[in-house]
Design a protein around this nucleic acid. Sequence first.
RNA 1: UGGGGCGUAGCCAAGUGGUAAGGCACCGGAUUUUGAUUCCGGCAUACCCAGGUUCGAACCCUGGCGCCCCAG
Length: 355
Amino acid sequence: MKKKAIVALSGGVDSAVAAAILLEQGWEVAGLTMEVVTPECFETGQNRLGVESGKASREARKVADFLKIPFFSVNFTKEFREKVIQSFFSEYLSGRTPNPCVVCNRFIKFGILQEEALKLGADLFATGHYARIFHENDRYLLKKGIDEKKDQSYFLFSLQQEQLARTIFPLGSLTKDEVRRMAQKMGLPSPDRSESQDICFIPDQDYIGFLESELHIKGTAGNIVHVSGKVLGPHQGTYRYTVGQRKGLGIAWPQPLYVIRVDAEAKQVVVGEKMYLEVFEMQVQDVNWVAQPLTGSIRCKCRIRYRHQEAPASVVPLEDGRADVFFDEPQAGVTPGQGAVFYQEDLVLGGGWIR
RNA sequence: UGGGGCGUAGCCAAGUGGUAAGGCACCGGAUUUUGAUUCCGGCAUACCCAGGUUCGAACCCUGGCGCCCCAG
């Protein structure tokens, strides 16, 4: 009997090609899509997001129909809100900068969506991620995608072994160009869509407006303070700022100023010249060791944000899932709330959250 | 109302006779499955106002207006 794979279809090119590849390889394939942003579920009750309910499913269904594969859709609006959006809120309110994609992958996409796929009878769950999984010595290893420019392993650092075990990434050994050409050759419908980007649940990209309307908050004012202690002016809420931010400070200063620190409790945004952004060490928490649990310190390369030029560092594991990271060269913009991922060549050793 | 200084875009600011640097902010675009960063482009027919000198003035002269500092 044919092995069955269920592909998480987004309606975009990548997941469509992933499904096509599996079909070619002889899998029995079905498509599965989740709805995570049906507007009526938001408290406002208004469609301020401009998202049509069920849009994701409609787009994905077109692809499934084209490929002539069965299609399923689930509504995870509630779960998504509880897991992803809630933490998105609380992180911003505590002065940190969340990375909702990582949370979504851990709990939603490779969590309940994957479970849904298994319930539907799938042997494996597939997505269009540019990353690779290898099974060695009873361990499922996560590696970068071949296409360095598109590698998405960063967003997957918190996946558990069971999750990796049931996953397949058909695009991991392809480049984006190859995928595009395949899509064209297959005559996939409307690949005119631009790359998916920005926070998926905030289509207008106005995350500040989203926070304010959803949380009913409005400018808990405080001060923007220079690292020297000099008060430079007021701000309308610390959640509007993130470490490393340069634009939007609204302050006239001889040199470009960057956000160095956000102190939600003191309602203070500390800014300074670029040099103050440079940091030699940091601590991460809730570390997930993908390759193998780390017992002693190790040399590796650390990426502190998506598409960050990974930096040589030494990592020292601590208790409670924490670890100290010491960079060889100072890094600009170490931002609490962002993920830090440790690599050795293509291999993802693991990753944690910057404190 | 004695002395001194200043007045250039939303802000800071260069330019002291030859036809308005730069930075911040702002706007647009590129890059990007998070937030940022980064990159490219745009952004004063105009230099407090009014006269004058000059081929030519933000820059020189005269007179106003406004602001700041030190003295009353």
